[in-house]
Design a protein around this nucleic acid. Structure first.
Lengths: 252, 252
DNA sequence: CAACTCAATTTATACTACTATATAGCCGTG
DNA sequence: CACGGCTATATAGTAGTATAAATTGAGTTG
């Protein structure tokens, strides 16, 4: 890797902050830099940022690369460019809150208890509903996948194997809804939440505690009982949230 | 050159509502053109599209404008560019399904019964959950806004006024969740759904039919009863979906 | 003196031509 | 056969210039 594409400005390319992404392309760098400034609040809504030429100079990129990044930011609803007036940071209500990057930046820059609550709330909305939908319309094949994931959870010998099987279980349930909108929402929420509890090692000693709760979900889906599936899945995610909060609490 | 495609700024919609890509900027044109081709299926996942120079020529734009558009498409998960290999259409599972544009293109290009079902399913997931959350934590101020919207629905004298008040009601409920993720999801789903039932004029004669159902939602939120609010809102959206399907059925 | 017109100015938008860099595929050598 | 370098070709990035649009204010007119 080691991007040697920028010989003139040496001290770039080394991103000491996040363990994130080396080898970013330039426009991606622009997107992340400005995106994080906006989400983080150092660039406030309504604020007019420097004109292209100046901003490009400040970020050490060409105007072209800057503009490519701006288009992406504009697509995410973070900025708005108008001729003569300049590029303005848009109000938070225009942001595409469900965009993967926007969500990731919020996780990174505003990891407040409140935001975790909102994410958990979304999860507790999606997953029980998905379980109910899955119970309603799952095919035999889809049920088999859920079953296999459950078996893998049961057979897991360490935390890592369990976490993988757990994710597979939830994905299998979501898949059985045949609704890619729901799958997409789940994916986005899940990946945001996972930045917090990072394989909470403190549950390691008894990582299979959630197995029976998952079993109830499986059984409800097997016998095509939507309401039971909804309640069972609700129990799963509520238990998961409780664990996560406990983890975060002992962390601080 | 030949930039006479967008001389007048007259037909500029003050409401970025409909899918009217007239008088768009060039990169926006590229985004829409290729985005629609991909979503519509004439460009299939895995397919390698022509190299920049050729594609720019085909679309009658410069390479720069093309690349700006490509960055946006790449941010939406529709394409993936790699040096030497070219730009490849990504698999549907990588698409940001909840992106406003992606959703709009799907509405426009795949208006199947099945897709409407998925949207309705999402709505029936979000809104009851939101109503319950609102009942749990609404402030007095937020309740007042819901109340006002309800009063406006009651006072509506024509379909247009009722539709506006109806939207305001649902927005007020969503706002009371204090969860911008949920608000964003609602907004996106709602605007996608609204492309279908286009102010269904066939319900014009008795457009206030849903008023009592909304009243139950309001009352449940007023007395902070989450479960009642959930059920009442569920009734509202199910009734709405039934109307919509009836409308679509009589349309074809 | 108010209102209207119009041009100057500023800024984003768009184009062309060019350089830099990365990598798939090939080719030669051990 | 494997390994290492060569090359062709694609995207990534830069520089400079021209165009269009909108704000501003000066100038003109009722």
């Amino acid at each position: 890797m080691t991007r040697r594409s920028t010989p003139p400005s040496s001290a770039r390319a080394r991103h000491p902050k996040g363990a994130t992404p080396t080898t970013r392309s330039l426009y991606d760098l622009v997107v992340h830099e400005l995106g994080q400034r906006i989400i983080g609040g150092s660039l406030k809504p309504g604020e007019l940022l420097p004109r292209e030429e100046l901003l490009a100079e400040q970020l050490k990129v060409s105007r072209t690369a800057l503009r490519e990044g701006m288009k992406v930011l504009s697509a995410k609803g973070l900025v708005e460019s108008r001729t003569k007036v300049g590029t303005r940071v848009r109000d938070a209500r225009a942001w595409q809150q469900l965009d993967a990057d926007v969500l990731a930046w919020r996780c990174e820059l505003m990891p407040t208890e409140d935001f975790v609550r909102k994410l958990a709330e979304m999860r507790e909305l999606v997953e029980p509903g998905a379980a109910a939908a899955a119970a309603k319309q799952r095919t035999y094949e889809q049920l088999r996948h859920i079953d296999e994931a459950y078996a893998a959870m049961d057979a897991a010998v360490d935390l890592e194997a369990w976490a993988a099987a757990d994710l597979a279980f939830h994905e299998a349930v979501l898949n059985a809804t045949n609704n890619e909108l729901m799958i997409s929402l789940f994916t986005v929420i899940e990946s945001a939440l996972s930045t917090f509890f990072v394989l909470s090692a403190r549950t390691a000693k008894n990582f299979k505690a959630a197995l029976p709760a998952h079993g109830k979900v499986l059984e409800a889906i097997r016998r095509s009982d939507p309401e039971a599936a909804r309640l069972a899945m609700l129990a799963v995610v509520e238990e998961s949230r409780a664990n996560m909060q406990k983890g975060r609490a002992s962390e601080n």
